[in-house]
C-alpha cells in the first residue's frame, strides 16, 4: 500500500534522510522509531507529499506521490506532528471543512462525521472552538480528521505525544481497531507502544534505516536476550553457582540482589529447560525461574548511541538483516 524507494532529503548541506526505503501492506502497523532529529518526520512528510524528496520516490497504492499528488493524498489520512488545527473553528466546523475538501458532501459527510465523532468520542465537544480544548481532545480531533474519509493508508506522526496514560491507551486502542483494513505507519518515542501495537519496526538514526524487522526479532538484539532469572533457596555458599557455570550452554551467572541472572552462550535459546533439568537433578529448591525482563529501550540505546559505535559487533544471537530494508 505504502512504498518508499530510496528517499533522500537534503536541507542545504545537511542530509536529513538518506536512502530510506520500506513497504507497508494492508494489515501492517509499522512503528517508526528514532531519536529526535533522526529523520522520522521528514520521511513521513515526503510520503504524504508535503515535502518533495531530493531523490527517490514514494507511492501510495501504486500512485506516485510526486507525479500525482492529489490522487495519492486522497488515499492518505495524515496526523501531523503536534496536531496543527485551525484553532478558531469549532470541532464540527473543522471536520465539515475537511469533509468538503475531501469531496464528502450532504448525507455522506454527515455519515462520516457521525462515524468519527463516535470513534474518537468527540460528540460532547462538537460545538466548542478547538482552541478551548484540552490536548487530549485536540489530538482526537486530529485523529478524526485523519480517518474521516476512511483512507486505506494512515500516517500518524507521534499520535500519543503529550497525552496522559488513559488517553494514550484510548488512542492506541483506536489505532489497533483500524489495523486490519489499513496500512498504518506511526512514529513514536515510546517503545512499549511499538511492542504493543506494531508488527514491524524501523529504527532510523542520522537519516538512515538501522533496523527493519519485527519487534520480536528486534528484542533478539538485546545483549541479555535468552537470559533467565532464577532464585534458589538455601544453597550452600556458591556451590549451585559453580554447577550452573559448568552447565552446557551457560555463558555467565550474575548475582542480582536475591536472584541470579543466567546468561546463555551465543545461539542458545532453550536455556530454561536446561536450567530446569539441572535444578531437578541437583534437587535445588527453586523459588522462581523466568525469562529476564528485557527492555526494547536497551536495544534502542545500543543502536542509536551517539558515539557512533556501531551495534553490529555486539549483535547478539539471532540478529540479522541489518540496515537492508529496501523492498524487493
Amino acid at each position: 500500500m505504502i512504498q518508499a524507494f530510496d528517499l533522500v532529503k537534503d536541507f542545504g548541506p545537511i542530509r536529513a534522510v538518506d536512502r530510506v526505503g520500506f513497504e507497508v501492506n494492508k494489515g501492517d502497523i509499522l512503528g517508526f522509531l528514532g531519536p529526535n532529529g533522526a529523520g522520522k518526520s521528514t520521511t513521513m512528510k515526503m510520503v504524504t507529499g508535503f515535502l518533495s524528496p531530493t531523490s527517490g520516490r514514494a507511492e501510495i497504492g501504486g500512485v506516485n506521490v510526486q507525479e500525482n499528488p492529489r490522487e495519492a493524498k486522497r488515499r492518505i489520512g495524515y496526523l501531523p506532528e503536534s496536531g496543527p488545527l485551525y484553532q478558531e473553528m469549532t470541532v464540527f466546523e473543522f471536520l465539515r471543512f475537511i469533509a468538503e475538501i475531501r469531496g464528502l458532501r450532504g448525507g455522506k459527510a454527515r455519515e462520516a462525521l457521525d462515524r468519527v465523532s463516535h470513534l474518537c468520542h468527540l460528540h460532547a465537544v462538537r460545538n466548542q472552538p478547538i482552541e478551548t480544548l484540552s490536548k487530549g481532545f485536540r489530538q482526537r480531533v486530529g485523529m478524526a480528521q485523519a480517518v474521516l474519509h476512511d483512507p486505506p493508508c494512515l500516517i500518524l506522526d507521534e499520535p500519543t505525544d503529550g497525552l496522559d496514560p488513559n488517553q494514550k491507551q484510548d488512542v492506541r486502542r483506536l489505532i489497533a481497531s483500524m489495523a486490519d483494513e489499513k496500512a498504518i505507519i506511526l512514529s513514536t518515542h515510546i517503545l512499549e507502544e511499538v511492542e504493543a501495537m506494531c508488527n514491524r519496526v524501523i529504527i532510523i538514526s542520522g537519516g538512515r534505516i538501522l533496523v527493519d524487522e519485527t519487534p520480536r526479532s528486534l528484542i533478539r538484539r538485546h545483549p541479555q536476550y535468552g537470559a533467565v532469572q532464577m532464585q534458589v533457596l538455601d544453597n550452600e555458599h556458591g556451590s549451585a553457582r559453580e554447577t550452573l557455570l559448568r552447565l552446557d550452554g551457560v555463558h555467565d551467572v550474575e548475582a542480582r540482589d536475591e536472584h541470579w541472572l543466567v546468561l546463555p552462550d551465543r545461539g542458545i535459546d532453550d536455556l530454561k529447560p536446561r536450567l530446569w533439568e539441572a535444578a531437578r537433578r541437583e534437587k535445588w529448591r527453586l523459588i522462581s525461574m523466568h525469562d529476564a525482563p528485557l527492555k526494547l529501550e536497551d536495544v534502542f540505546r545500543n543502536l542509536t548511541r551517539p558515539d557512533g559505535e556501531s551495534a553490529e559487533e555486539r549483535s547478539p544471537p539471532g540478529a540479522r538483516n541489518k540496515g537492508s530494508a529496501a523492498p524487493a
Partner: peptide, 8 residues
C-alpha cells in the same frame, strides 16, 4: 502541513 496533505 495539514492543508497541503489534503487533496488540494
Amino acid at each position: 502541513e495539514l492543508l497541503f496533505t489534503l487533496p488540494v
